[in-house]
Design a protein around this nucleic acid. Sequence first.
DNA 1: ATTAAAATTGCAGAAAACGCAATTTAAGAA
DNA 2: TTCTTAAATTGCGTTTTCTGCAATTTTAAT
Lengths: 301, 301
Amino acid sequence: MKNLNDARLFLRIVEAGSLKAAAEGMETDPATVTRRLAALETRLGVQLLQRARSGSTTTEAGELYYEGMRQLLDSVDGLEEDIAGFAQTPRGFLRVSCPVDLGARFVTHWLIELQRRHEGLEIELLLSDEYVDLAGQNIDVALRIGQLSDSALIARRLGVMPLMIVGAPRYLEQQGHPTSLRELAECTFVLYSWMQFGRSVALVDGAGAKSKLQLKSRLSINNVGAIREAVLGGAGLHIGPEWIFAEDLRSGALEIAAPELRVPATSISAVYRQGPFVPAKTRAVLDCFLEKMPTVDGVRS
Amino acid sequence: MKNLNDARLFLRIVEAGSLKAAAEGMETDPATVTRRLAALETRLGVQLLQRARSGSTTTEAGELYYEGMRQLLDSVDGLEEDIAGFAQTPRGFLRVSCPVDLGARFVTHWLIELQRRHEGLEIELLLSDEYVDLAGQNIDVALRIGQLSDSALIARRLGVMPLMIVGAPRYLEQQGHPTSLRELAECTFVLYSWMQFGRSVALVDGAGAKSKLQLKSRLSINNVGAIREAVLGGAGLHIGPEWIFAEDLRSGALEIAAPELRVPATSISAVYRQGPFVPAKTRAVLDCFLEKMPTVDGVRS
DNA sequence: ATTAAAATTGCAGAAAACGCAATTTAAGAA
DNA sequence: TTCTTAAATTGCGTTTTCTGCAATTTTAAT
């Protein structure tokens, strides 16, 4: 059977100068050295080493074998170190998937920073609100919002995304500034089309009492900018993350509806495929996301 | 421990497309394939293969490892085939040692023919009448005349070299054309300085009776041309191989002394170092010598 | 001839690899 | 969803290989 370890042994013998020296150098028995060298010579059908009293010397074939193998095995070692480096240093291709608007607003900047930190890292960001199959599309890390479907993926919770109910002053006025659950249920909502919180939303009032709001809706859009336009235009209320409407709330273009009723924040997680080894690039992007993820009042969860 | 056979296995898995296919292709158990792949991945600390339902695919690290290893191991195989070829095809350097005059007269031509037959063979012919140490001077084959000193060398008898007693007509006349052992013992001999037949020579008469001739000598030379000059000049008799004096005998410049008394032919052998493997170049030169060696009356020994 | 260092070989114990069988996993179909 | 099926993994006993010690042989130098 082909055993390249014998070739390695041969190199050491040549460099050590004798079988015994090689045996000592690698802390083994001269017997082993003899036998494995003999095995190598038998396999090749050629004598490689001219045994002599003090210091064996290579035959012509042995010299060629030494020169060639020295170079090849050095290359092998180099390659393996390089490959093993994938466990140490983030590099190579990193494919990240992320919901469209979240990506456009935050993740792009995070990845630019990540890339700045790691020279050898190439990144591809795939923005999609569809369900993405990490294995199928060879994606390393995906950001997920809300409840995670139980899968074979490992999830790392990055933080929470506060949600709020907003509407245009015009619409709120028209609806009589709803404050109770019942009044809210009368309103029309513009929904983001990825229905991760379905058609009903759990609400919490100031006292901590929970209630369930059935959403009435006649319009759903899968783009945050368009939703904003719709809400600004008075098409209805919207439940969405704070960061989308922060500016409009400040300017008064939008208002918070029923401030006493709070929508529980949804969580943001990064998921990646499970496996015996986590590539350094994956670890790096997770750490970067965790670091960059905005916190709520300094608290992450 | 580093085992490059696992790398070979990995290549087969990639090429076969799945662990099971690889296992079948190399007639082993999928269990073995799994374990050795896992060992490789553990050693490198990196996942190489993305296991999937039908057909595993390489990870990024796996792809690089595959590409690199494929090339390196192909090179290794090429090198080993090349080295193993030393057992099959004569090539490389061949160092031959030979007595000076024998080499100048015959061996040179034989080696030219040998070189003509084998393209990749480089030859160095070392002419010397000194004792040569094959191992010490890295000589592959040496020609030896006469009795072989018992050594660690393997000898191949190539043939015999007929010897004869010759002298110049002038000298023979002066000595009264010696025919008997006693008369010969009165003569002076010019000796070749490599004394492989010592100072006494066994003679055989026409009836097969053996006798011993003690040589009287006042001149020894280690060059055949010079000896011939000396004998032609009447310095004495000489016991030497036929081929040196054939021309002179034909022309009458020299004559055979005591034709009834014959000197037994000496043998010519090729010797080479013993070892577990005989290189193809050594076999080739031995065969060539055996083929080219002149025979006596068509009989070799 | 003697000696001493290195290499080789015999033998028994140890370690590793293997193959079978059972279990787990994951993809596609009902 | 649940079932089915093929692949991959894991446990375990067996077999093979390999190692290390000790004895023997070899070879060059005294």
